[in-house]
Nucleic acid binder design. Structure first.
Length: 109
DNA sequence: AAACTGACGGGCG
DNA sequence: ACGCCCGCCAGTT
């Protein structure tokens, strides 16, 4: 196996984990990174998601991935309040600051 | 080649 | 509970 496939494998894992997030639940980048074994490379998870968007995996429910504060940091890539609407459609509620209640909706891979 | 950036997280005040 | 700073990893300029 070529070492060049390491990245691809990383993307596939991110895809796999995100695809398993139950409807109406959310998880964090750090949780995914830990599950992948990358640990501190939480940033790479977001990077991978952005990359998967271009890879054609646009069906990925990445709107269920938020940061540790429960903020929809990726809403920029969805455009406007699309990300929030998607989560609301799944029954997720937001607080006054527009953050997800992680204690209530958090899901660990 | 060096420095900056970024879908982040944890620690500290 | 919130804001600020530092550390991680790969990509970009």
């Amino acid at each position: 196996m070529s070492a060049a496939n390491t990245n691809t494998d990383f993307f596939e894992r991110v895809y796999d984990v995100v695809a398993r997030i139950p409807k109406g639940k959310v998880t964090t980048y750090g949780a995914i990174a830990r599950h992948l074994g990358t640990g501190r490379s939480s940033r790479m998870v977001g990077w991978a998601l952005n990359k998967t968007l271009e890879s054609g995996a646009g069906m990925l429910p990445c709107h269920r991935v938020v940061n540790r504060k429960g903020e929809l940091t990726g809403k920029t890539w969805f455009g406007g309040d699309t990300m929030e609407q998607l989560l609301r459609a799944e029954g997720v509620t937001f607080d006054e600051l527009g953050r997800v209640e992680l204690a209530r909706y958090y899901w660990e891979p």
